[in-house]
Computed example of a mutant assay.
Amino acid sequence: MRVDFHTHIVPENITDIAEKFGNGHFPKLEKTCSCGANIMIDGNVFREVTDQVWSPEKRIQDMDAEGVDIQVLSPIPVTFSYWAAVDEAEEMSKLQNDFIANTVNQSPDRFIGLGTVPLQNVKASIEEMDRCIHELGLKGIEIGTNINGKNLDEPEFASFYEAAEKWNVPLFIHPWETLGRERMPRHNFMYTVGMPSETALAAASLINSGIMEKHPNLKVCFAHGGGSFPYILPRLDQGWNVWPSLRLTSKPPSHYTKNFYFDSLNYDPLNIQYLADRFGYNRIVLGSDYPFLLREVPPGKIVEGTNQLSKEKREAILGNNALELLNIEVKEEAK
């Protein structure tokens, strides 16, 4: 069983939102051919994509070719639309959530779905999370690393975490609108340096604020192997030790990572082994970032090459860990 936890999908009709509200800042999908398109923002090309982004049939072809049994579908972060008016962002979320749920329902043996919520309004987000989980049958919620520049430990988000813990909803945290963007115009550093740093800030915010202490059963998965967070965790502990006046938790930061999960997208067996040694192999899930350029092809290649891990541990990372994170019963034949 091979489950790719980190894949992105966009509905073909996502352009309807921009046209309905007359706002070009919402992403549009402009076809360039039958198998390609540009994602447009404010009239500019944000990203060139192929039909892998919107076509379940194409995805299944790729999955079969690359040995993937199940993809976990989540929105592309640019569609979060946290900047928009709440009613408009709600429609954007619902359009995507309905599409993902329908895609899963058409091929339930190949796809699992994560939803998105308009986190600029916590009340609306809780309502949409409720609909995603209890009506649409989605298995988790993807959120950004910040909400319009606000870190995830802002007090206004407290009730969202409370609801997620109460309903046992895993959160998939994906970087977007990265810190220091103004210093990264060259070399695509926003993707290779900014995103890992942004993810580390999000993880540290959840810990140092006391959110993970207050919600010990909240499950959180971080994209891209947790970015730089796993490697700065000892430094966070040291900061907690030397600045007692700043402490908001009863124990050092490393104590609160027991419900942190990390996808495997860090490109190097040494990094996979480091995650396993620090957090446990059962906290790593296969993630490829399909279908974008920085993805791992085929998914799981680096995990398979981490020879220090036993065969059983590698198999858990490639499949069952994701199912357990998403509260999906692991069938005996999948073990």
Rank of each mutant, 00 (worst) to 15 (best):
Y256F: 09
G194K: 09
R235K: 04
E177V: 07
K166I: 02
D277H: 08
L152D: 09
N151K: 15
L233W: 07
K150H: 15
Q273E: 13
M190R: 09
F260V: 08
P175A: 06
N241T: 06
Y267E: 02
N188D: 11
K150V: 09
S245H: 08
M195C: 06
N208F: 05
P175N: 15
A158L: 15
I173D: 07
K251T: 03
P234E: 03
Y267F: 11
M190H: 14
F262M: 10
P244A: 08
T192W: 09
I147D: 01
S264Y: 05
W240G: 06
F157T: 05
P234D: 11
K258N: 08
S264A: 12
K150N: 11
R181W: 11
E198H: 01
P234F: 03
E162C: 14
K219T: 09
E165W: 13
L236W: 07
A204N: 10
Y267D: 04
P185F: 04
A200K: 06
I272V: 13
S228G: 10
G180A: 12
L265W: 05
W240E: 00
A276S: 12
P185A: 04
L201S: 14
A223F: 01
Y231L: 15
S228V: 13
L236E: 04
L270R: 13
G280E: 07
D237K: 07
F279L: 03
I207W: 03
T257R: 05
L270K: 13
P185L: 05
L171R: 00
G210K: 01
W167M: 12
S228K: 05
N208I: 10
N259I: 00
Y261R: 03
N266K: 10
P216L: 08
R235N: 00
P155T: 02
G225K: 04
W176R: 06
N208P: 07
A164Y: 01
G210H: 02
D263P: 08
W243A: 14
N151Q: 11
P253K: 02
G225R: 05
N151H: 12
E198K: 00
K166F: 12
R186V: 05
H187G: 01
F262E: 10
D263V: 10
L206V: 07
K258V: 03
P252M: 14
S264G: 01
V193I: 14
I173S: 02
N259V: 00
S159D: 15
K258Y: 00
G225Q: 05
H224A: 14
R181K: 14
E154Q: 08
N148I: 00
T249C: 14
R183V: 04
F260A: 10
L246I: 07
E198L: 01
L265E: 06
E156P: 02
F279Q: 04
E182H: 06
P155L: 05
T257D: 10
A223H: 03
I232V: 15
S228C: 13
K214R: 15
S197H: 08
S245V: 12
N259H: 02
R186D: 11
L275W: 05
R183G: 11
K219D: 02
F262I: 12
L246E: 14
F229N: 12
R186P: 01
E182K: 10
I272S: 13
I232D: 02
K214M: 03
D268G: 06
N241P: 01
L248D: 07
K251I: 03
L275H: 06
T257A: 06
Y161F: 12
F279C: 04
I211V: 12
L265S: 06
L206Y: 07
